[in-house]
Amino acid sequence: MKKVIILITLVFTQISIAQSNESVHLWPNNVPNEIEPKQEHEISDNKKNKVIRYSKVTNPDFLVFEPIKSIRSRAAIIVCPGGAYNVLSTNLEGSEVAQWFNSLGYMAFVLNYRVPQKQLGALNDIQRAIRIIRNDAEKYNIDPDKIGVIGFSAGGSLVARASTQFTIESYDKTDEADKLSCRPDFSMLVYPAYLDHGENNTLTPEITVTKDTPPFFIFGSATDVKYRHSCTVMAAALYENNVPVDVHIIQEGGHGFGLRPGNKAAKMWPLLAEDWLEKILE
């Protein structure tokens, strides 16, 4: 009976957390590089593997996930779901990951960037989100110099772009927050995609790594046949520019596993990521 009561309590706690997440829209007026009007996020009819997918986002926002216990190192992580830039796997690679970060004591924000196929808009959105969160660091009780990003699949592509294009003004300034830096302080890629679109599977040309690129954590699997080179070419570019990087490529795992049980890779990356975060944030 005690176990049942605990389980019910946990379920209601999770529901309460899900219902109380603050939504912060990124653009108070016009959305840059967007021709469609603002509207509620559209949910796809595809519910395969119990994944909730946003199939259309025109009014991008981020959801705030606060840890129950005190914030570790006062660091925060912006979570970027994947979905081939066509959809956003908003629970598998969004809220579930944010709640895991919360369990470690970190503040987390899930970014609902623009889809489908709005890569420039997505870059606008992540740059703007970093600036808003940095501007509101006191409100969220976080260190403005410890704001990181994590991306899965296409979200990993977006994180790599944001982590190497922070000197590019991809949109016109709208307010005081836009005067702040949009450079992430650390970056994490889990089974990233689209980073090997250069000639002969080399690094995608728009991703230019320099000595100012933030430190990276990269995780993938050898059985992720379609996207596995994204991990290696990004890691090589970071090595060549003396940017700190921890890269882990395990044999089995495939793609799109998130934190779901039953996959060894899904069990391994959080352990490695937790250890890496403790080291870089100490």
Rank of each mutant, 00 (worst) to 15 (best):
I6M: 12
T9M: 14
T9A: 15
F12T: 15
Q14R: 11
I15T: 10
S16G: 14
S20T: 12
E22V: 09
H25M: 06
L26M: 05
W27H: 02
N29F: 08
N30H: 09
P32F: 08
N33R: 10
E36V: 09
K47Q: 14
N49A: 14
P60K: 09
F62N: 02
F62E: 03
I68D: 11
K69R: 11
S70E: 14
S70A: 13
R72T: 15
V79E: 00
V87W: 11
S95Y: 05
E96S: 12
W100K: 10
W100A: 05
N102D: 06
N102Q: 08
N102W: 05
V115F: 03
P116G: 07
L120K: 14
G121N: 04
A122F: 01
A129V: 10
I130V: 15
R131A: 03
I132S: 08
I132R: 02
D136E: 15
K139C: 05
K139P: 07
P144D: 08
K146M: 12
G148H: 08
G148W: 08
G155M: 08
G155I: 07
Q165A: 11
Y171I: 05
D175H: 05
S181E: 08
R183P: 02
R183A: 09
P184M: 10
F186P: 02
S187Q: 07
S187V: 09
V190G: 04
V190N: 06
A193G: 07
L195R: 02
D196F: 07
E199V: 14
V209Q: 01
V209W: 06
D212H: 15
D212T: 13
D212V: 00
G220L: 01
S221H: 02
V225W: 00
R228Q: 13
V233H: 03
M234N: 04
A235H: 04
A237V: 03
A237H: 03
L238V: 02
N242I: 00
N242S: 14
V243H: 04
D246S: 08
V247A: 11
H248P: 05
I250S: 01
G253S: 00
F257Y: 10
R260H: 06
A265C: 02
A266R: 02
L277N: 01
E278V: 02
I280E: 04
